[in-house]
Design a protein around this nucleic acid. Structure first.
Lengths: 333, 333
DNA sequence: TCGGGACGGGGAATCGATTTCTCAGTCGAG
DNA sequence: CTCGACTGAGAAATCGATTCCCCGTCCCGA
């Protein structure tokens, strides 16, 4: 674990000043090609690699962006993370990932951590449409921030998300085509923008098709809630023709629990969900689910960050992407 | 996004030298309590927070450790990550998480990245018992490294893992108690130490109970392989009394596919698995699975890292933890 | 031939926090 | 009363990479 090599060493080996060595390594045009060659050679031979901290200290840039998601147990977020990482890799930047455990306090702590690490930008899937605002606001004062998938409006940052209204419309339409007349919605309480938008959209598009009794069941974005919702549904009178689910994490355990109780899907009840995650393909039947173009969304999120770094005074921008329903067996005939 | 406050500012506000301010903030004893109070007060009022890079540059410490796992889609690794993060939080350190996509090349890149970021230590779940060695060796020359769960022996680093032999023994023993006589093993090819050890242990403990024909099916640690293995199993003659599965990620899709084909678990075949992950509780029936004490293992991993930082010349140490089978419905009577 | 401009490259300052070094001042012992 | 040990605090060096500033050189046109 000996002392590592610095520009100074490279410079000495190439017989130039550290200043020139630095310029040569940065590919600065104002340096004699011959010297540049010598420097590059020396650098290679010595196995030089710049000290990240010294560089960050001087340039105020880290070539790193931070991402905070509510839970890395949710495959949809994992997909988002991977997509962002991919995009960053193209420009030799890297990602620091944090999990906020679906908790406002942890989220604030993680955001602070990343701001302290002087990341060049922050992509956050906020835990709460209201309570995430303070942390986001203070972060946005220091660094470029883009919210992803969900938005806490009042934070006033850029945003990339999906068109939930259209997604839910596609769900209901698809179910109607399959002959369904009565619908129930099982999702998360509207403390996040996505939960809220999907719920409203369902109300609007299902119209008087909302199952009279248990038409809405609202809980959390996790598997436990899916199980619980299934039990409630089973306890209580006849099933609707179809269930619209706010997220795959909920739908998977919902489906499993229903089937364990002898309910046949799609025969007894049809099921559509949201996120089109890997999880939804592990079930039998596989889930019909609304796909969002995560790769494009990730690219856009990074683009917005870069834009804001160039001009911090831009007004908050929103990019909304169109989703697409992917039909599988859970709504099969 | 104005310039932020430095020790110098705090020092000025408290009317002391920056040197004293630094000492006061570090809680150094050789500083007048009165002055210390003034400094702390000024620091608080100005909302001072030290520049991570300047500090790291000077102290050669980052209070950050890096972790590389093969896939954050595997809930077992997610649990490990969360456990490590928890332990680090106790000492105000933080974690940078990377996903190696189960690929040696990506793994090497991620390890390099983290070494470049001068993390204080590295916890790695290696992708391959052989091919992960080079990256681990070079990393270990620069920084403290602990391998977690799986080991690439030749890298010569510290290691924390579970006793796979004992875990598999518990599985087979439990199944025998439930009256099973013939067994199949479905796991990953022995390119990782865990896959290898579990396979060998199965061979040993199942003895002549190994199902004559399809007694071993070896693939990858992922869901796709579980599905495929299930199909193979279904295609081919009578089922064994029980299946021992090398990991929950495999078992879940295996189970789902079997049930979709009309096989009743545990009636027609019993199933035990490894990892006791959250996923295994989403299925019907829930999985009997071997639990490893992830929290203690995480704590130990961090302890080993800290030990090595103090004395880099220690011989490579191994800490092996005893697992415990958790019985659920998939092996029910 | 000489002055101005372009250009390449080196010295030194800079980014902040920490950690020597150094020294003034205090106290106790002889 | 004097000398040395000790305390506490400030000045300055340090960690490396980058970059501003400026100087020397060379070329070209007048």
């Amino acid at each position: 674990m000996g002392r590592s090599i610095t520009v100074r060493d490279v410079a000495a080996a190439a017989q130039v000043s550290p200043a020139t060595a630095s310029r040569a390594l940065a590919g600065h045009p104002s340096v004699n090609p011959e010297m540049a060659r010598r420097v590059l050679k020396a650098s290679r031979e010595l196995g030089y690699s710049a000290n990240v901290f010294a560089r960050a200290l001087r340039t105020q840039r880290t070539d790193t962006i931070g991402m905070v998601v509510p839970s890395i147990s949710n495959p949809y977020f994992v997909a988002a993370v991977e997509a962002v990482e991919q995009v960053l890799a193209e420009t030799d930047r890297s990602l620091i990932l944090c999990d906020s455990r679906d908790t406002v306090a942890t989220e604030a702590a993680r955001i602070d951590l990343l701001v302290g690490r002087r990341v060049d930008g922050l992509i956050v899937v906020p835990v709460s449409a209201h309570d995430s605002v303070p942390a986001l606001r203070t972060a946005a004062a220091e660094v470029a921030v883009t919210q992803f998938d969900r938005i806490a409006e009042a934070a006033g940052t850029d945003f990339v998300g999906g068109d939930n209204d259209d997604g839910v419309r596609q769900c209901v339409e698809h179910l109607r085509e399959r002959g369904c007349r009565t619908f129930a919605y099982i999702g998360a309480r509207p403390t996040t923008s996505t939960a809220d938008e999907r719920l409203r959209a369902f109300r609007r598009f299902a119209g008087d098709g909302v199952a009279p009794d248990r038409g809405f069941l609202l809980g959390e974005f996790n598997a436990e809630w899916g199980r619980e919702a299934a039990r409630t549904l089973l306890d209580d009178g006849p099933l609707p023709d179809a269930i619209v689910c706010g997220a795959d994490v909920i739908a998977v355990s919902l489906l499993t629990t229903l089937r364990a109780a002898g309910v046949e899907v799609p025969r007894d009840v049809k099921l559509v969900s949201y996120d089109d995650s890997s999880m939804g393909q592990l079930t039998v039947p596989r889930l019909t689910s609304v796909h969002q173009p995560v790769d494009s969304m990730a690219r856009e999120a990074v683009r917005l960050l870069d834009g804001r770094r160039e001009d911090g005074s831009l007004p908050a921008r929103k990019s909304i992407f169109a989703p697409d329903i992917v039909v599988r067996e859970s709504t099969g005939t």
